[in-house]
Amino acid sequence: MTTRRNFGLMLAGGALAGCTTTGTTAPFSDPLQPRGRLRLAPVHVSEDRVIRVVAGLRPYRPGGFVVRAERFGDKTLVHNYGHGGGGITMSWGTSHLALDEGFAGPERDYAVLGCGAVGLATARLIQRRGGRVTIYAKALPPETTSNIAGGQWWPASVFSAKDATPQFITQFEKAAKLSYLHFQQLSAPEYGVRWTRNYSLDEDDLGGSFLFNRLAALAPERRTVPAGEHPFGRSILQYWDSMMVEPPIYLQAMMEDVFAAGGRIVVRDFKSQSELQALKEPVIFNCTGLGAGELFGDKEMIPARGQLVVLLPQPEVTYNLVSNWSYMFPRRDGIILGGTFERGNWSTDEDPATTAKILANHKAMFAKLKT
């Protein structure tokens, strides 16, 4: 599901509410804007502009994702799952760490379970190191959880700070930095990856000071704009740059890369570990996301439902905006509106009340925008 949901609340579980450190406060000087007062094209939020509503389930673990190798009968099993709302964002980084745990050399056969962002990144890294790979998955793009994602690159809603260990935080930081570097190599139209300016209003800063302090280099040109120098009235406004990843383009391009490098994809739904042990590949990378809870007995794994409302595209809107846990991301296939993170909710059906709330929140957000 969407990679950046419920921002600070979902990251910290309320534990970091007192952290208020922000970026540098300075007279407004945005190099992406003409000199003078910041001007932004408004998003036209209305019910008759809705083109689709989708809901998906993030594979959330309060203690954070799992990257770990273990013996699995006569095989090696490498886990790489549980990324919460950061599956796309963290995919290359955790896959890099997973290969460090389980890559057994080139000219070997490897199995990857799952064909979302994490599974595809794992497969491509295996191929880059010379290995032969087969992806086994019960669903392929565009039917994966990764397809139902907003796509902003930022590692929010990945874990709860009160549940994560210091060892995990170290691993998380390393994976985030690795993933950031990998995605920069894919910044091109054919992968649907581009640099985008982000603006956040008031208390929302995509994970709070905890993330920004630890990952400052991953939020370049982060600034706080004084009131009066931006079009949102008395609100506090911050901005920084990150990458946007458009899942429909990105996931299809990644699959094509896997095929072009000689990889195979087999549609198969595994019901038991014994079925996995029957595979011919001696090394298995488990990128099953939410499915790892049942298949491998991970009781920490829970769904975190997210619902998105998509409006007609507006090519003139070229920025991201977040406020009060709501977020807007412009993409080629529409304006993405979101802001839900429902732990324990397994439903992927549209909830009309949630749709109405998302639209109301975004109407209020853009009502502040003075053009």
Rank of each mutant, 00 (worst) to 15 (best):
M1H: 13
T3E: 11
R5F: 14
L11D: 12
G14M: 06
G14Y: 08
T22W: 08
F28P: 06
L40G: 04
L40W: 13
A41V: 04
P42F: 09
V50G: 00
F65M: 04
V66Q: 12
G73T: 01
D74M: 09
H79F: 06
Y81E: 04
G85Y: 03
G87T: 00
I88F: 09
M90Y: 02
L97P: 07
D100V: 13
E101T: 01
P106I: 12
V112H: 08
L113Y: 06
G119Q: 14
Q127N: 10
R129K: 10
G130V: 10
G131I: 04
I135H: 11
I135F: 12
P142V: 04
A149R: 03
G150C: 08
W153M: 12
A161G: 06
D163L: 07
Q167C: 00
T170G: 09
A175D: 13
K177M: 07
Y180Q: 12
L181G: 15
H182L: 07
H182T: 06
Q184R: 14
S187Y: 11
Y191Q: 11
G192K: 02
T196D: 09
R197T: 15
G207S: 13
F210N: 10
A216L: 10
A216F: 11
L218Q: 08
V225E: 11
P226C: 12
G228W: 05
E229N: 04
E229G: 00
F232L: 02
S235N: 12
L251C: 05
M255L: 14
A261Y: 07
A261W: 09
G262K: 01
R264H: 11
I265C: 15
V266E: 11
F270Y: 07
K271Y: 00
Q273N: 06
L276F: 08
L276S: 06
E281I: 00
P282D: 12
T288D: 01
A292I: 03
A304P: 07
V309M: 03
V310M: 02
E316K: 06
T318K: 10
Y319V: 04
N324K: 14
W325S: 15
R331Q: 10
D333M: 05
G339Q: 03
N345E: 12
T354F: 04
A356K: 05
K357F: 13
I358L: 13
I358Q: 02
A360Y: 02
A360E: 09
H362L: 02
H362M: 04
K363C: 02
K363P: 00
